[in-house]
Write a protein that binds this DNA or RNA. Structure first.
Ligand code: FES
Ligand code: FES
Lengths: 141, 141
DNA sequence: TTAACTGACATTATTATAGTATCAGTTATA
DNA sequence: TATAACTGATACTATAATAATGTCAGTTAA
């Protein structure tokens, strides 16, 4: 069972790369090479990030992509939502006839609660804090 | 994004049905009909439940399946684990070279934390409490 | 004017999930 | 003792989600 797909995975890597060179434009080629991600696939993903204005692009020679938001303001939920839709742990499992008491259904309630929890937790994980973690690899134990 | 698959869905329904007729053997046919679940698919699922001894079976005419554990001791995690494996929200997203500081990786830590949370929450949801909810549909508001 | 780029979109491959089919063996019962 | 109603086991097919590739038109800097 996977909560995060490759789309999300690669998107986060791309964002980390772009956050690391904040003011430059990086081409899809460069990002693909540095992060070892399939080039064409990455391009699709970058288009997704553009739609939500997490990055902007510049066409033509010397063009590429640049991050468009402060890294601490981009959480991994933002990315998940673009590529996988809202975090929804399950459709309502039981249909009307079975689950007469939908409003009070324990399963429904619990799943909703867990869902909110996951959302909240993931909102706290930002590109900024991930980048900081990557850039300060040596901490004394 | 789905956390619960049809296997899990149907398994929970079957368990609810069996928990409702604790001491009888119900045939796969009966369960399939009552819960409106595809018969052959359900049979596969019941075999899964047998392997973990959540239910036992009786072969031959008049045979079928019977629940084998107290409903309050069967949580939906038990069922999820059988059909979908351990709740693991993602594989480690970044490989060694990228994430030098694996031990301290924020993402890794956070995802692990959320994972534990989900597990804990789902452990609290048992067949017993779901059945109780189904059987007492009318609560005063 | 051409090499290095993005935009847009069609296509294919791979894997996970969902569902069906078949047949051998068991058991109650008529 | 024949047979109808069952399970056990496993092979198979279908469908959908995910992952990845390919192509071509248009843009821009050098
Ligand atoms: S699971 Fe949907 S109402 Fe109970
Ligand atoms: S995500 Fe795996 S070590 Fe950071």
């Amino acid at each position: 069972m996977k909560l995060l797909t490759k789309h999300t995975d690669y998107a986060i890597r791309a964002l980390l790369e772009l956050a690391g060179s904040k003011d430059e434009f990086l081409s899809a080629q460069q990002i693909a090479k540095r992060q070892r991600v399939p080039y064409q696939f990455l391009r699709q993903i970058l288009q997704g990030l553009i739609k939500d204005k997490l990055v902007i692009s510049k066409e033509g020679r010397g063009g590429g992509f640049r991050i468009n938001k402060h890294p601490y303001l981009i959480s991994i939920v933002d990315v998940i939502v673009i590529f996988q839709g809202n975090i929804q742990l399950s459709d309502c499992m039981f249909r009307k006839k079975l689950c007469i008491n939908r409003a009070n259904c324990v399963l429904r309630k619990q799943i909703n609660r867990v869902e909110k929890l996951v959302n909240k937790e993931f909102k706290g994980i930002t590109i900024g804090c991930l980048l900081r973690d990557l850039e300060k690899p040596k901490r004394r134990g």
